[in-house]
Every structure is written in C-alpha cells, then in structure tokens.
Design a protein around this nucleic acid. Structure first.
Lengths: 208, 208
DNA sequence: ATATAATGTGACCGTAAGGTCATTTTGGAG
DNA sequence: CTCCAAAATGACCTTACGGTCACATTATAT
C-alpha cells in the first residue's frame, strides 16, 4: 500500500517512520493525529510522508498491517499454536501478554484500531473470523478428545470461551501497560496463578 | 452543562436536538460530526446550537449524560435490580437488550462513547466502577446463600462473570441491531433459550 | 399597543491541517 | 568529477468547519 519510494527506503528508516506514526495515532486517534507531527517524530519532512504514502488514511492502514504482521510473527515464533488443546491454548495467554509487553506501543495501537471501525472494518472482521474459526476448531477437538462437555451448541461454547479468555487477556494487558516498569517475572508468575484459577472456573463454573 | 436558554426550551424541542446530535455522532464519530449537520437534523440554525451549548464538546458530553439517564430510567422501571441473585441478574439481560432495542440509537451511541475515551473517561470509569461494585455485591450474596462456590478470589469471580455476561449481552445487542425489523417476541424467545444454556455454562463450566 | 427581553438566524471570520510542488540535496554509475 | 535519477524539503495553497455576531423574529409584561 505505501509507495515504491517507501519500499526502497532502508528498513531502519521504514521502521522509524512506522513507529512514529503508531505513537502519534495512539496519542491522538486518527482524526486528531497530524501528518506533520508524525513526520517530526520520525525526523523527516512533512513532504516526505507524502512521498511514502498517498494520504493520511493510508498511513493508518499500513500501520495496522505492519503492526499486525510484526506481532503475529513474534507470537508464532514463540508458540506454534496448531492443533492444541483448548485449555492449553488459554495458557498461551501468558506468552501473548509478554509479547504485547515487548511491543507495548503496538498493543496500544491495536486498541486504537478498535476505535476506527470506519477505516478498517473489513480487516477487523477478517481477524475476528479467523480467531473464531480457530477457537471453534479447538473446541471441536476438545469435544472429540473428551475434554469438553458434549451436547452444547458449538457456537455458544465458543462465545463462552472467548468471553472468559478475552476478558482475562485484556485485564492483564491493562495491568502490564499501567505498570510497565515492574518486574516482569513476578508479574508473569502472578498472572500464571490467576490463570490457573480462571481455568478452574472455565472448566467447572462458578456454581455450587 | 447546556445553557439556561436550552433548559427553558420546550422539552420536545430539547429532545429533537439531542436525538439529532446522537444520530450525527453515531454516523460520524465526534471529530467528523458537524455542528451544522446536527442543527440541520434538528431543524434549527447552526447559531442556535451555540445558544444551547458552549461548544461541540459540550454537545457530545450532554448526549452522554442525557442518553445514559434516559436508558437508566427505562431500565429501572422495567426491572428493579436491587438485592438479587447473581444468576437471576444474568436473566435480566433479556430486559436490557429489549430496552436497548427500544432505544436503538442510544444503544449505538453508547458504543460511540466507548471510542472517545479522551472526552469522557472519568464518566466511563465511574460507570465501570459502579457496575463492578454491584456485581461484586451480588457475588458476595451468592457465596453467602450457597449459590456460588467458596474459596475463589472475589475479584476473579467478578471478572469471570462479567466476561461471560458482557459478551452475551454484546452478542445479542449486535443481533438486535442488525435485524431490527425482525419479530421481537421470536427473538427474545431465542435469546432466552441461549441464555439458559449460557447460564448452565456459567454455573458448571465447559469441562467434562 | 408598545417596550423589552428572549430566542432564532446565517453570513462571516479565523485557523488549522491535509495535501502539492518547485527547488535543493543526496547518492551512485561511468 | 560529472551527471542524472531518486529522495528530501518546507513554503504555500485550499478547504472545511468551529465559533461569532449583528440583526431579525417572537414572546411576555404592562
């Protein structure tokens, strides 16, 4: 989506520009973000930004693509999640949150993306569909292996699972973001403990 | 927050103005929304809008206050939720979604509010705190009455409960919004059926 | 009926920011 | 060293929209 010129730029400079854009969008959202300020952050002239991208919208869109790609790569190399147990998959939240911690700004940018449905709703819809499909598969496996209850609607099980796990993920993402200075190993231990309790709830429910 | 002039306006006109603003903000978000277009929708001159409100920001803020108030009133008169059972409270989702269906636009506006944290994060934080506190109370009651498992962290139970119930609520809100023309009684029956299954999951979990 | 206050109005102003472009700088090939 | 293409730059243009205000209209009181 960016221009040829941008693609020929030294990768380090590309990254500097993208990170500048991401920061600016995090701080101000799409509308209030100024192309000139992105340029300033990247130590580049405003005019250059328009040699790299067609318009502001394209900068934002490419931030999403670039950021998502980078995060996905990091996530994949850390934990190959294919053909896993549903509950083991929930354990992977620890990895996810840690990657998000390393890529603090990108994690924040993903929240900003959420707030701009008009700009990238096909993209987001696509992401959700992929994630949903994946979880469905895990659940089907779980039922087949006898780890998950039979007789309940697959769709509902997926909603239940994602309701719990998404909330948990968001909760810890927020904690990590607020206290990003704190000791990471202590945090991940604390998270691990909570995760075990939550897994218990997920498996056995809150009823008596 | 609006001016004296606005407060002296005939209530019907006040409502016309507010609904116009809400619609415009839904369609365009805060930044892209034009005061002139709000005025046009309300069949009022642009200048008048500035006799009613100090600035655009204030229009948005008052939309939030006015809308929340209206929804809360409708919700309260439908289902007084004090000192309830946790699981009975989840059943109230049906009422909630129905009220949101009646106030379709206000429901959508609440989603827009979510996307403008810079404008009203104290307001939102306040709302979340109230909701959290309420659910905590319900859970404590549940434990005391023996309906909820003992020995688990109250905070975690709250997160678990809200993870499941929020997701369920959003899911049905979205369905109602997409198919707002469809037969409401059939829908609420379908929702009721799903809700019962979800309640089963909430109580007993998805494990085998 | 008249005076006075309250409300309504839309042309107008100022400004900020997206986008352009003529010019300069840089870098590499011969 | 020279030359040319690619890249960088920032002054400038344009537009759009938030906000103002002088004037018109309507309502109220006496």
């Amino acid at each position: 989506m960016p221009t040829e010129t941008f693609s020929r730029l030294p990768p380090k400079k590309q990254e500097r520009v993208m990170r500048a854009a991401v920061s600016e969008f995090i701080q101000n959202g799409f509308e209030r973000a100024k192309v000139e300020d992105i340029a300033a952050r990247a130590q580049v002239a405003k005019g250059s930004m328009y040699q790299y991208f067609h318009d502001k919208r394209e900068i934002f869109l490419y931030c999403a693509q670039w950021g998502l790609d980078l995060i996905m790569r990091k996530l994949d190399q850390r934990a190959p999640t294919d053909d896993m147990d549903v509950f083991a998959y929930f354990h992977e939240t620890v990895s996810k949150v840690q990657v998000m911690r390393e890529e603090h700004e990108l994690a924040l940018f993903m929240q900003v993306m959420t707030r701009e449905p008009g700009l990238l709703d096909e993209t987001m819809r696509g992401m959700y569909e992929v994630a949903d499909g994946y979880v469905r598969k895990l659940i089907r496996n779980g039922i087949a292996r006898g780890a998950v209850r039979k007789g309940l609607d697959e769709e509902l099980l997926k909603e239940y699972f994602l309701g719990v796990t998404d909330r948990f993920e968001r909760r810890w993402m927020a904690k990590y973001i607020d206290f990003s200075a704190a000791d990471p190993t202590a945090w991940s231990a604390a998270m691990q403990r909570e995760l075990d309790q939550m897994l218990d709830l997920l498996k056995n429910g809150m009823g008596c």
